[in-house]
């Protein structure tokens, strides 16, 4: 029996196409939604509007203190009990969005708090509303400051989706595992998955450094 068969390896790749499509969909939708939610949470945590603050803090602490798998189980098995029927994809998107938002919220909060008070003063002095101040003056600067931890979070997002198989989503990792069982050739089955993940995460490390250098120039 050969150690590594190129034939099997190359034939494995087509199996991964739907899985990659699914994963990319989840990554992009989740990133967009969770960033918006996280920014809202960060602003709530900074300005502390009474009830919302406690709700936001509670939310963030819960989602940071429990594993993603448990959250997935909670939604997947729990929601039908409440009469809410969601597809596996929707549950997956929901859980990953929420946990990602919880982590990103803290990162974004730190970024905003790092912006000097005088920037707020200059913006208000011009007559800008809170919303416009955040949108045009504060958030652009904050996001540039937090590129490294934020790309770290994106990396965690990409890797985090691997466990979605627990709610029967055919993600990249699950595809590899099922293929390994089917073909009895685990090496050729997992190798494409490894390559796919590294192809997604390794460039992020370098993009992070490049963006950091470029945007830090006109930061503050």
């Amino acid at each position: 029996m050969s150690i590594f068969s190129w034939r099997v390896f190359l034939n494995s790749w087509p199996e991964f196409v739907p899985a990659v499509g699914l994963s990319v969909q989840i990554w992009t939708v989740t990133f967009g939604l969770s960033t918006v939610l996280a920014t809202l949470l960060a602003i709530i945590r900074i300005y502390r509007p009474l009830i919302l603050y406690w709700m936001a803090s509670f939310f963030i602490q819960i989602f940071r203190s429990t594993p993603l798998i448990i959250q997935l189980y909670f939604f997947y098995f729990g929601l039908p009990h409440l009469g809410i029927m969601m597809s596996e994809m929707q549950v997956g998107l929901l859980a990953v969005t929420l946990i990602n938002a919880a982590f990103s919220a803290e990162i974004i909060r730190v970024g905003i708090e790092a912006i000097h008070r005088t920037q707020f003063e200059a913006a208000y002095a011009l007559g800008l509303t809170f919303f416009d101040t955040m949108r045009y003056v504060i958030l652009p600067q904050a996001f540039r400051k937090i590129i490294p931890p934020l790309t770290g979070q994106v990396t965690l997002l990409i890797k985090g989706t691997a466990v979605l198989s627990v709610i029967a989503l055919r993600e990249v990792t699950e595809t590899a595992r099922a293929l390994a069982v089917w073909t009895f050739r685990p090496l050729e089955s997992f190798l494409p998955a490894i390559i796919i993940y590294l192809a997604a995460t390794l460039p992020l490390f370098f993009i992070s450094k490049v963006l950091e250098r470029r945007w830090a120039r006109h930061g503050a």
Partner: peptide
Amino acid sequence: LREARKEIGIVFQSFNLFPH
């Protein structure tokens, strides 16, 4: 106040230009 700020310009000691 917000209305009034349209008519009041202020220049700060540390300029406070928007760096981005």
